[in-house]
């Protein structure tokens, strides 16, 4: 059960919504009263919403160049419309379906593998009783987040290069044939996903840890009094306590399913593994090099948005039913 479902305020709203036969005037009056009651909240919203209007919605207005042949001298409004031409350039790419498949595979792998690992790590850190050790682990695991992918390539070559990499040296010592991990279509995806997990898991535990700290210690004490084991306490208190964050992150990740860490792929991939490594963003980047990429890049951005919107709506209604959690 959600921890908010029982609050009186929510119950009141649900009841109000359940009565559609209330006369309009009364509903308006009720709304006005509710709005007045929340006047301080609206005051708080002024600055952030102004920000959103200017810095998020004006660019979205400018994004009409996706449907236009953009001319700098004529500006956004003055440029001629060309319809879906830029979208077609993307859809007609010989590699369109492959790009989508690769992108989704990386996205899902990150979600399905990366997230549980981060949650387990967060739980382990949370449960450890050795304060110094656990802060050490916490600090050290989040450090790789700061390594840029260029440095990561250096590290990976040191490990995986067929001519001098550490792992390949071990394989050779054991009598095996060296494996070209970074240029082999059979291994490239694993390298991408695992290196991302290595780099980002520690950093993503921060959120889960903060969520775990938000759980009232009283709940644990009560469970201890009841004689629940450590494992049961994790299962019945810790996990439910971070479900809201898990659902939230999952939904948001699904919304951005067509966005994969561009930097990573750009640095790691090479021609022999294009078929398993090329993603939408790298394609846009390579296409964009060619000329004034503005409209094409914007069109692809909008396309990704549409897909994300559909996914997030579906996932949201699933989450609402299954976990009693939703974004809105």
């Amino acid at each position: 059960m959600s921890q908010y479902a029982g609050t009186p305020a929510v119950a009141r709203v649900r009841r109000a919504r359940a009565k559609p036969d209330v006369p309009l005037a009364m509903r308006v009056q009720r709304l006005a009263r509710a709005m007045w009651k929340h006047r301080w909240y609206y005051l708080l919203l002024i600055a952030p919403l102004t920000y959103y209007l200017i810095f998020r919605y004006i660019p979205i207005w400018n994004a009409q160049i996706a449907f236009k042949d953009f001319f700098a001298l004529k500006g956004v409004e003055g440029s001629p419309w060309v319809g879906l031409q830029h979208f077609e350039a993307f859809f007609n790419s010989f590699y369109f379906s492959e790009l989508i498949v690769n992108t989704v595979i990386f996205s899902l792998a990150r979600l399905i593998l990366g997230m549980p690992i981060a949650i387990i790590l967060a739980l382990a850190i949370h449960e450890s009783r050795f304060l110094f050790f656990r802060s050490l682990v916490q600090t050290v695991t989040y450090l790789p987040h700061f390594l840029s992918w260029v440095i990561m390539l250096g590290l990976l070559l040191g490990l995986l290069s067929p001519s001098s990499g550490m792992i390949n040296e071990m394989i050779k010592a054991a009598g095996g044939q060296p494996i070209a991990f970074l240029t082999s279509t059979a291994w490239f995806r694993q390298v991408v996903v695992l290196s991302d997990i290595w780099k980002e898991t520690g950093w993503s535990t921060i959120l889960y840890l903060a969520a775990l700290l938000g759980i009232s210690p009283d709940l644990y004490e009560a469970a201890e009094v009841d004689g629940a084991s450590r494992w049961r306490r994790i299962w019945h208190i810790s996990l439910p306590g971070i479900v809201p964050v898990i659902v939230l992150i999952t939904l948001l990740r699904l919304g951005n399913i067509l966005d994969v860490s561009f930097q990573q792929i750009w640095v790691l991939y090479s021609v022999p593994v294009y078929s398993v490594g090329d993603i939408i963003d790298t394609w846009v980047y390579r296409s964009g090099v060619l000329d004034f990429q503005f409209s094409l890049a914007t069109a692809v951005g909008l396309f990704k948005g549409v897909i994300g919107l559909i996914l997030i709506l579906v996932a949201n209604s699933v989450a609402k039913r299954v976990a009693q959690q939703s974004l809105f």
Binding site: A89, S93, F94, Y95, V271, D278, R286, L290, D291
Partner: peptide
């Protein structure tokens, strides 16, 4: 450059 240079080159 052709308009599909990225695909052609790949």
């Amino acid at each position: 450059n052709p308009s599909n240079r990225a695909d052609l080159q790949r």
